[in-house]
Design a protein around this nucleic acid. Structure first.
Lengths: 191, 191
DNA sequence: ATATTATGTTTAAAAAATAAACTCGTGAAA
DNA sequence: TTTCACGAGTTTATTTTTTAAACATAATAT
């Protein structure tokens, strides 16, 4: 898949404002609104692009961290991927080659909760079969504070978190040092 | 800033489809289209959210890498941030605390070019004052292949790249092992 | 008590999106 | 060469959406 100059202009504009009208996109490209419509529809239907809401981390005072993980083999890696597939705190999970074979970006509503997902049973690092891991709290997201936080996973209606680690028995949750999982009923935060 | 249940539904839907009409959002929330319109406008004007086009890495066969950097102090860090501010290959740069103080996500059109931004003078790692760095090619972006590649920076009209490192004298560029900088005229790739 | 502000609704007008039929150039097959 | 199908844009008429403005109403501040 390759984009020509017209697609490029369309995508650039849609990155700045994903709700730009077809009329405006037409003017930018020198096409009619119907011409540009077919381009945009193609891009969307072929899944070349997606137009999506990003959240401003600064506005919401969200905290990010990068987690580096080395597993003892591919089974552990797969287990981790499966387990955190629907975790609303996971922004990205990359599998990599090199010293670490998994790198994740995770989000929390406050520092205390970030600490929970650094150490507790609900943490990526808690999985059996992890040889080594490092945890880097993010101080600044430079250039642009907008991130694709998976809000639709924070539906607050489950009784067991997607990762299957119940918050209730956790001391941090009990003593109000962690807001719990945003996908469950007993969530206490504002994600 | 806090989102209530209505905002939450709006943002969730806009994450799935950023061009969802106000009518549809109204139905989802039980509001009129004008009611929901004010919510959406507030979210956008307060910069709580942004609606933006993301690119499908798989469709375009893009390659990602995570770069970990430890600098000798804050000056080097600031210099790096400044230098790569408008680099179209940078997806994210985080400043972190811990063993590494900078973590970046970079993108390339092919493996050869990825290698360039791992080692060449245009690489994040080439900056003076870097004590230590690691480079992790991403094998898989799990769950969702959509990423906010900064396409508007790939305008292909500069004569000197934003990072100020000219591609022309570079052997990799000369021997077609690197497509060069997407912000410049002599770019040979398809970003 | 009395403004004031934040939120939502209604209405009518303007703008945008859509479906369908049409045009034109290109490239493959007869 | 001719013909036909196809992709990419345009035009037009119609339907949907968006928008602005005036109006409600409840909560908050003075």
């Amino acid at each position: 898949m390759k984009l020509d100059e017209v697609d490029r202009k369309i995508v650039s504009q849609l990155q700045i404002d994903g709700r730009t009208t077809l009329e405006t996109l037409g003017k930018i490209t020198g096409y009619t609104n119907m011409g540009v419509r077919k381009r945009v529809n193609n891009l969307l239907e072929s899944e070349s692009i997606r137009i999506s809401a990003l959240m401003n981390l600064k506005r919401f005072n969200f905290f990010l961290a990068v987690v580096l993980i080395e597993t003892d083999g591919p089974e552990t890696l797969q287990r981790l991927l499966k387990r955190f597939e629907n975790c609303p705190r996971v922004v990205y999970i990359f599998t990599t080659i090199g010293g670490f074979n998994m790198i994740a970006l995770v989000v929390a509503e406050d520092k205390e909760t970030l600490e929970s997902i650094s150490m507790e049973k609900c943490s990526l690092r808690s999985e059996k079969g992890i040889r080594r891991s490092e945890f880097y709290p993010v101080m600044d997201v430079n250039y642009s504070p907008f991130m694709p936080i998976r809000r639709y996973l924070a539906h607050k209606d489950l009784s067991v978190p997607p990762c299957r680690v119940n918050c209730k028995p956790c001391a941090r949750y009990k003593f109000e040092r962690c807001v719990g999982c945003p996908a469950t009923k007993y969530y206490k935060g504002h994600l």
